[in-house]
Write a protein that binds this DNA or RNA. Structure first.
Lengths: 187, 187
DNA sequence: CTGATTATTTATCATATGTTAAAGGAATAG
DNA sequence: CTATTCCTTTAACATATGATAAATAATCAG
C-alpha cells in the first residue's frame, strides 16, 4: 500500500487518519495476464491502481477490438465515462501482464469525500491530471499523422513495444495492425 | 447570474452563502465577435460561462489555425490543460458571435474551495462531466471517419452550420476545409 | 453600392491508410 | 517436442483525405 500513498503524495497531502480511512476500503489484488478485470456492460465501481504490470481499456467497434488506453506501473486505471456517470460501460479492463493492483471501492470512497474534504481534494487532483492527459491526447489524434503518433508513443513509453502486442498498439493509435507494421518497416 | 446558478443546480446544491461567495468573484462580460478573450501564451486563470453566443478554443500547428473545441450557450469555457497545470497555454479563446459571459476568477475560486467544500464539490463535478465528454471525443477521433464525425456533430449541434464558419468546423473534425466541402457535397 | 477581402466549392493529382489475403514467426498447450 | 493457434509482416489493390490552384460566393469596409 506504500506505493499507492507515495503516488498520492504527488498530488496533495493526507492526514494519517485519512490514510487509514482509505486503506480500509482498499484491497490488494493479484491478477493473471489476459484476465478481464472488469467486463463490458458493468458499471465501473472500482478505482484501480497498478503496482506492477500492464493493463488496457478496450471495447468493440463493429466487432473489432479497439484499445482505448494503456495503464502501467503507478497509473490509476478507471473507466471514467462510467464512474462519473453511473452508467454501464461499453469498455472492459484487461490485464496484459501478471499484475499486482490495489482496488479502491468507489462508493465507499465517495462516502469518505463527505467526511474528509482532503480525500475529495486528492481525487479531484488525480482526475484533473488524467483530464489534462486526455485533452493532450485529442491534439495528437486530431492533427498528427499515424507515424508521428507512433514515434511519440515510443518516446513516452519506450518499452511498450516489448511488453504489449502490436495489434493493441495499432488500435490505440487509431490505425490498423497492417498500417502499423508498414510504418515500423519504413527505415 | 441566474443562468449560471441554474447551470450549477444540475451538478450539486449550494447554500445561499456559497452562492454569494461565488457571485462575489464573478464578472459579467460583453464581448464582440472575433475578439480573442484570452491570447495564446497566457496562463488560464479564468473560468468562463457562456450566457449567450459562441466561442472556440484554437491554436496554431505549423502555422495553421486549428479549432480544438466550441462552446455554446450554457457551456463552461476553459483551457483545462493550463488551468490544471498552471502552465501557459498554447491555445487561445476566441468569441465567434457577440457574446455575454460570466468570468470566474480561478485563483479566488480555489481559495473558496478551502472555505466551502460544497463549492469544491460543485466544480469537481462540472469538470468530471467535461472529462467524460473529452473521453468520448477521443473515441470519435480514433475510430470514426470524417464523414461520420461530421454527421455526429450535425446531430449534436444542428445549427452550428449556420453559426460557425466551415473552416473552423473542418479543423475541429480533424480534416481540411477542402475535405469537409467534399463531404458536404456528396448527396 | 462598390470594390476588396474572406470563405467556400470544385478540380486535379499525390499520398497515407484501409482491406483482403497469404506467408512467415512466435507463443502456447498438450 | 510438436502441433496448433495466435501474432506480425508483406503484397496488391481500393479509397479517403491532403495539397495546390482556380473559380464562385459571401461578407465587410469605405
Amino acid at each position: 500500500m506504500q506505493q499507492l500513498f507515495q503516488y498520492f503524495k504527488q498530488f496533495s497531502p493526507l492526514t494519517a487518519e485519512a490514510m487509514d480511512a482509505i486503506a480500509d476500503i482498499c484491497k490488494l489484488l493479484h491478477v493473471a495476464k489476459h484476465t478481464d478485470l472488469q467486463p463490458i456492460g458493468h458499471t465501473c465501481k472500482t478505482i484501480y491502481f497498478l503496482n506492477k504490470g500492464i493493463a488496457r481499456i478496450y471495447y468493440y467497434k463493429d466487432g473489432i477490438d479497439i484499445t482505448e488506453s494503456f495503464a502501467f506501473e503507478n497509473d490509476i486505471l478507471v473507466r471514467v465515462e462510467s464512474l462519473f456517470t453511473g452508467r454501464p460501460s461499453r469498455k472492459a479492463i484487461q490485464v496484459l501482464e501478471d499484475a499486482e493492483l490495489v482496488a479502491i471501492d468507489a462508493n465507499q470512497l465517495f462516502q469518505l469525500y463527505d467526511r474528509y474534504p482532503e480525500i475529495e481534494r486528492l481525487f479531484r487532483k488525480i482526475f484533473e491530471a488524467a483530464h489534462v492527459e486526455t485533452v493532450n491526447r485529442i491534439e495528437a489524434l486530431q492533427f498528427h499523422t499515424a507515424e508521428e503518433r507512433y514515434k511519440a508513443l515510443l518516446n513516452e513509453e519506450p518499452n511498450i513495444i516489448q511488453r504489449v502486442p502490436l495489434k493493441y498498439i495499432a488500435s490505440y493509435l487509431g490505425i490498423t495492425q497492417v498500417s502499423l507494421s508498414r510504418i515500423r518497416s519504413q527505415r
